[in-house]
Amino acid sequence: MEIYLIRHTTPAIESGICYGFSDIDVADTFETEVAAVKAKLPTGDFDVYTSPLQRCSKLASALFNQEITADDRLKEMNFGAWEMLAWDAIGREELQTWADDFVQARVPQGESYEELYSRSMELIHELVEKDRNAVIFTHGGVIRSILAHATNTPLVDSFDLKVQYGRISQLKVEDGDIKVVFYNS
Score class of each variant (00 low, 15 high):
Met77Lys: 13
Ala89Val: 02
Phe46Thr: 02
Asp71Ile: 04
Ala36Lys: 13
Gly16Tyr: 01
Glu93Asn: 12
Leu161Lys: 03
Ala81Phe: 03
Val156Gln: 15
Gly44Ala: 14
Ala12Gln: 08
Ser158Val: 06
Met77Cys: 15
Ser15Leu: 07
Lys130Glu: 12
Ile17Met: 06
Gly140Thr: 03
Val142Met: 06
Asn184His: 01
Phe182Trp: 10
Trp82Pro: 08
Asp88Ala: 02
Val26Thr: 15
Glu111His: 06
Ala148Cys: 11
Lys40Gln: 15
Lys75Arg: 15
Cys56Met: 12
Tyr4Phe: 15
Thr50Leu: 00
Asp23Trp: 14
Val180Ile: 12
Glu126Trp: 04
Glu111Thr: 05
Val107Ile: 15
Glu93Tyr: 02
Glu122Ile: 05
Ala70Cys: 06
Val156Glu: 15
Tyr183Lys: 08
Thr32Trp: 05
Tyr165Arg: 06
Ser169Lys: 05
Gln54Ala: 03
Glu129Phe: 08
Phe102Asp: 04
Asp47Arg: 09
Pro42Lys: 04
Leu127Gly: 05
Tyr165Thr: 14
Glu76Leu: 03
Gly20Ile: 01
Val26Lys: 00
Pro108Tyr: 02
Arg119Asn: 06
Ile124Pro: 04
Pro154Asp: 11
Leu5Val: 13
Trp98Lys: 04
Ser112Cys: 05
His139Ala: 11
Ser185Ile: 10
Met84Asp: 01
Gly80Ser: 08
Gly91Thr: 10
Val26Arg: 04
Cys56Asp: 12
Asp71Leu: 02
Gly176Trp: 02
Ile13Pro: 08
Ser22Lys: 10
Ile68Val: 01
Val135Thr: 04
Ile136Cys: 00
Ala99Asp: 14
Glu94Cys: 10
Asn65Ile: 05
Ile90Arg: 08
